[in-house]
């Protein structure tokens, strides 16, 4: 198997073609943040709706490569219904996975996130895989984030 087909696993190709939770969240409770990779021009906006400390709903919109699109899509699937603490742990472990810092925690990530392990072999693509996660974290951290505010991330 070539390294490119290891990078572009079928799960990634599938989520690139048909991203889940694509779109916006309207309404008072929704918060969002914008992420941007100035090097390649990729853009993503992540919407979150919390109920207590649980992610009740999450959506994303944006344009970017297959890695960034699939990563955003799979992230929404992974964090929906999780507590903030669980989401933050997932992010930390996912970051370890795509930067090649293997640990018990990265091994324990759900299989649908494990498909990004090979990104570590493509250093220029690490940002693609982590952009949506950084943006989601930004939306989580900004307690004042209302639907009308835009938070840029560089």
């Amino acid at each position: 198997m070539s390294s490119v087909s290891e990078l572009y696993q079928s799960v990634i190709l599938d989520h690139n073609k048909a991203p889940r939770n694509y779109g916006r969240l309207e309404g008072e409770a929704a918060r969002h943040a914008k992420g941007h990779n100035p090097l390649c021009g990729d853009e993503v906006t992540v919407w979150l709706e919390l109920e207590g400390d649980v992610v009740k709903d999450v959506r994303f919109e944006g344009q970017g490569c297959a890695i960034s699109r699939a990563s955003a899509s799979l992230m929404t699937v992974a964090v929906k219904g999780k507590t903030i603490a669980e989401v933050e742990r997932l992010f930390a472990d996912f970051h370890g996975l795509v930067t090649g810092e293997k640990s018990e925690a990265t091994e324990a990530l759900p299989a649908r996130l494990q498909v990004f392990a090979n990104v570590a072999q493509f250093p220029v693509r690490v940002k693609c895989a982590s952009l949506a996660w950084h943006t989601m974290k930004k939306a989580l951290d900004d307690t004042t984030a209302a639907a009308s505010t835009v938070n840029g991330e560089r």
């Binding site: 390294s3 990078l7 970017g64 490569c65 297959a66 699109r69 693609c128």
Partner: peptide
């Protein structure tokens, strides 16, 4: 169509 330039760049690089 259907392939982002960065993904194309990665496939070509191989």
């Amino acid at each position: 169509e259907g392939v982002h330039p960065h993904d194309l760049g990665t496939v070509l690089d191989e």
